[in-house]
């Protein structure tokens, strides 16, 4: 439905209510759609102040802005009253530095992140690279705002940051590069053949998962860590891992006295109770917290069959 002159006037005012106005689903603290969230992430990264209009709270705005901009999707970004585009365009302009120019901010050069890649990961990547594509494709690593990782082959894009490691070129867009400094990309064994695993020191602390064979290796390697069994004495009497300390009153006291950076592994029967315990100690400020996936059951079946199953 075409807009009336009055509606058009309202949008003329709305898009100019601030230098930078984003029409989106949700607000800047709680974006309610992935595309809106991506644009919010980019705007925050540039550091410019911006206003948002939540189209979900007013159907007239939601339909009207599509008509006004001749653009059928949300989000929509306006700068100085001019429509710049949706998520795709904003992403591309940001990567190329054009968005920063439009916003009048200095496009600070991003230092190439220092990354490491273990031998098996490098081998897996080289095997996956069929080569011979035109334009040539390189390995790209995208790191999302919640530290979601996407590793894939794609063409080089404007503004890309290139890192050469273990004979491989890895491309990052600027935002991903900032989240990538110090990462370690590994190839680990999984039940379905293997997978990439990424350790990233920039990630906010969260419970990391540890498999039974990995725990065995830590013990064999005499790695420095603490292992806590969150089960009660009744279950511990049936089966336990020798190195595990009970998380009873004394155990908890010992734990709380540890350095907050200590590697701490929690273990239970199947890995559920230990996960909750691990999350609780994360809120106590511990930053290097692991959950033994599959609990003592996985330990019995994968590492030490002498430990009884129950």
């Amino acid at each position: 439905m075409p807009l009336t002159d009055q509606q058009r006037q309202q949008f003329d005012d709305l898009v100019k209510k601030s230098r930078v106005v984003l029409f989106m689903k949700g607000n800047k603290h709680f974006p309610q759609c992935g595309f809106s969230a991506q644009v919010i992430g980019i705007l925050k990264e540039t550091g410019v102040p911006f206003e948002t209009v939540n189209v979900l709270s007013d159907p007239a705005v939601r339909d009207g802005i599509k008509e006004y901009s001749s653009w059928p999707t949300i989000p929509q970004l306006y700068v100085d009253g001019e429509f710049l585009g949706g998520c795709d365009i904003v992403k591309e302009m940001h990567a190329a530095g054009d968005l920063q120019k439009k916003l009048g901010v200095v496009d600070k050069p991003v230092a190439p992140p220092k990354i490491t890649l273990d031998e098996r990961a490098a081998k897996a990547i080289k095997e996956a690279d069929e080569g011979g594509t035109s334009p040539p494709e390189h390995l790209r690593l995208e790191i999302g705002p919640q530290f979601q990782y996407e590793l894939y082959f794609g063409p080089k894009q404007a503004g890309d940051i290139e890192v050469v490691v273990s004979g491989l070129t890895v491309l990052f867009d600027k935002t991903s590069a900032k989240r990538a400094d110090g990462i370690n990309i590994m190839w680990v064994d999984t039940p379905d053949g293997g997978a990439f695993k990424i350790e990233n020191p920039n990630e906010p602390a969260r419970v990391k998962s540890l498999t039974a064979p990995e725990l065995k290796k830590w013990i064999d390697d005499k790695k420095s860590f603490e292992l806590f069994d969150v089960r009660g004495e009744d279950e511990r009497a049936v089966a336990k891992i020798d190195q595990a300390r009970a998380l009873d009153e004394a155990g908890e006291k010992h734990l709380l006295g540890l350095d907050k950076k200590t590697a701490i592994v929690f273990q239970c029967h199947h890995g559920m109770r230990s996960k909750s315990a691990a999350e609780r100690f994360l809120t106590e400020g511990f930053t290097n917290v692991f959950n033994l996936e599959g609990g003592i059951e996985a330990w019995s079946t994968k590492v030490d069959s002498k430990v009884p199953r129950y």
Binding site: K66, S70, W71, P72, T73, F83, L84, G85, G86, D88, I89, E92
Partner: peptide, 17 residues
């Protein structure tokens, strides 16, 4: 890019309403 995408999106806008 804006003009190009607008051309394509305009063609399918009725399917996105």
């Amino acid at each position: 890019m804006l003009e190009s995408q607008r051309l394509v999106l305009g063609a399918i806008a009725h399917l996105m309403k």
